[in-house]
Simulated assay, not measured.
Amino acid sequence: MHDDSIASPVAQLYANHHGWLRGWLHRRLGHSADAEDLAHDTFIRVLRSKEDVHELRQPMAFLATIANGLLINRWRRQAIERAYLEALAARPVGEEPSPEERHLMIETLLQLDSLLVGLSARVRQIFFLSQLDGLTYPQIAAQLSLTVAQVQRAMGKAFSVCYASRFE
Rank of each mutant, 00 (worst) to 15 (best):
D4I: 13
S5V: 15
I6W: 08
A7H: 12
S8N: 13
A15H: 15
H17A: 13
H17P: 02
H18C: 13
W20G: 12
W20P: 00
G23Y: 12
W24V: 03
L25Q: 11
H26A: 11
H26W: 14
H26F: 15
R28C: 05
R28T: 01
G30S: 06
S32W: 07
A33F: 03
E36S: 09
L38V: 00
L38I: 08
D41N: 09
T42D: 09
T42F: 04
F43I: 08
F43S: 10
F43Y: 07
V46W: 06
L47D: 01
D52L: 00
V53M: 07
H54Q: 12
E55P: 05
L56D: 05
R57P: 08
R57A: 01
M60P: 05
F62I: 06
A64N: 12
L71Q: 07
I72S: 12
I72K: 14
I72Q: 12
R77Y: 11
Q78G: 10
R82D: 11
R82S: 12
A83D: 12
Y84K: 11
L85R: 07
L85Y: 04
A90Q: 15
R91C: 09
P92K: 15
V93I: 09
V93S: 13
V93G: 01
G94T: 01
E96Q: 14
E96I: 06
P97G: 15
P99M: 06
R102V: 15
H103W: 11
L104Y: 07
L104E: 13
M105W: 02
I106H: 00
I106L: 15
E107C: 13
E107V: 14
T108K: 15
T108P: 03
T108S: 13
L109T: 03
Q111H: 02
D113I: 09
S114T: 09
S114C: 09
G118I: 00
S120W: 12
S120M: 06
V123G: 08
Q125C: 09
Q125S: 08
I126P: 00
L129M: 15
S130M: 06
S130N: 14
S130W: 10
Q131I: 05
L132S: 05
D133C: 10
L135M: 10
Y137A: 01
A141M: 08
A141S: 02
A142V: 04
R153L: 15
R153N: 10
A154T: 01
S165T: 06
R166K: 08
F167R: 12
